[in-house]
Nucleic acid binder design. Structure first.
Lengths: 266, 266
DNA sequence: AGAAGGACCAGTGGTCCGTA
DNA sequence: AGAAGGACCAGTGGTCCGTA
């Protein structure tokens, strides 16, 4: 019952925790709540993985855990509140609300709009203080979002789906059609995400393969870094197009995507 | 005798070393030579200062020392060739060549033009490879400059005098006048450098105190980061202006710099 | 198997301070 | 004392991979 509300009322994918509001000192405009549970972090004795240089860390960790050092000792659940993640995304049609413990794609795209709002706030504060002013969604913005209570926003997730949001911005018709097609076919989010690359490469083709220019020309998209993989795909496809044009001299290069796209791992 | 040539022929401040040309693989356009001496770096057993975490470094150091591992063992001079620095700058008039083991300010400004050329080359390479393309003079550009033989270009130096170059770009008349005045008074480079801030703050005043906008509006200047101190001075002076305006209501705010500038450490 | 995100790492912007 | 620049450090962009 609570889950069904998530996309309608507060745009929140997580809803099982006792939500506790924080009014933040640095100008929170009230976007989203603050879950203390997500801050618990499973505590210290969790060793860092991979070849980290073994500094025998006795770090003071005095960044922003002020209130809740309740207690504990067991590694895992704290006070019976389970470690919680956002519900996974599913492919939904435009306007469709996800059922069950899932989030829909309108919600995903809404997260990008929220990040933009957080960026605007960070920019306002920076200008007011005479500090350098970010033009992109940086670590600083993600930190600010978290501090403002939007703990469901994080960098890996936002970066993961940037190109999906890009298609939504640049060609909403095509984006909607893709969503409907992949929903109908019962595809999972991962394959929908993969499928978002191709139409973007075609758009880049129509702009001299300059994907940066494509991003920068769109006001809501220009604040996002072009994803590495999208950049690489555009580069590869450009090379293919150039190679094809050098064989069939005088051929007008089309941007339909049905041309030479061999070996690109689409 | 060699020193007198430095600003006329090859724009080189250093001239005592046996110069050895490198034609670089990655597209060196021939700006400047390559001093092997400067690469020697005084070798390993030079302990890092300050609280560095003592990693007992056995670093492999395989970045770009390919040919010249001649030999050595003594810490300091290598093969009798002394560790060499660029000659210090002195305040010169426009067009004036520095005498003795000194460099003039035309040479200083020329270094900024060279950095711009290196940036353009880095950008060309990046675009060609479909990689992300820097818009500013970044670490990558300094590394490229060094690799291309311009060992006399380094980040601390260029950042140190950015605002002096900015004044030269934005108001060459005022810049030239300042140079003449400070030369005549026998001031050293440091005090000339300090004096470059004030006219820039006044220029920023004339553009709504937006020093970033001032930099970005100028094609040769837009590739440089706004120095922290200049940004702070503009911010402080804006606050002073706002405070003054709130006292004397209806007063037109001038940008002459003769107004309230108390406690700014000019 | 599919997906969310804490945590890591190489290389950045910024500049201090041992050096000449 | 004045100045050049090697080397450091906090925090970045990018994303892997242990986790749920």
């Amino acid at each position: 019952a609570l889950d069904a509300l998530s996309q309608e009322d507060d745009w929140t994918g997580l809803s099982e925790e006792p939500v506790q509001q924080h009014t933040d000192a640095a100008g929170n405009n009230g976007v989203g709540g603050y879950w203390e549970a997500g801050q618990g972090k499973m505590k210290k004795p969790q060793q860092r993985r991979r070849k980290k240089q073994m500094v025998t860390s006795v770090e003071t960790d005095d960044d922003m855990n002020e209130g809740d050092d309740d207690d504990d000792g067991n590694g895992g659940a704290v006070l019976g509140i389970e470690r919680q993640r956002e519900h996974p995304f599913i492919v939904t049609e435009p306007g469709e609300v996800a059922r069950g413990k899932k989030n829909g794609l309108d919600y995903l795209f809404h997260l990008y709009e929220q990040c933009r709002e957080f960026l605007v706030q960070v920019q306002t504060i920076a200008k007011d203080r005479g500090e350098k002013c970010p033009t992109k969604v940086t670590n600083q913005v993600f930190r600010y979002a978290k501090k403002s209570g939007a703990s469901y926003i994080n960098k890996p997730k936002m970066r993961h789906y940037v190109h999906c949001y890009a298609l939504h911005c640049l060609d909403e018709e095509a984006s909607n059609a893709l969503r409907r097609a992949f929903k109908e076919r019962g595809e999972n989010v991962g394959s929908w995400r993969q499928a978002c690359y191709k139409p973007l490469v075609n758009i880049a083709c129509g702009h001299g393969w300059d994907i940066d220019a494509v991003f920068n020309a769109h006001p809501r998209l220009s604040i996002w870094y072009v994803p590495t993989k999208l950049r690489q795909l555009c580069h590869l496809e450009r090379n293919n197009a150039v190679a094809a044009a050098s064989v069939i001299v005088g051929n007008g290069i089309s941007c339909t995507g049905s041309s030479a796209s061999g070996g690109m791992g689409f």
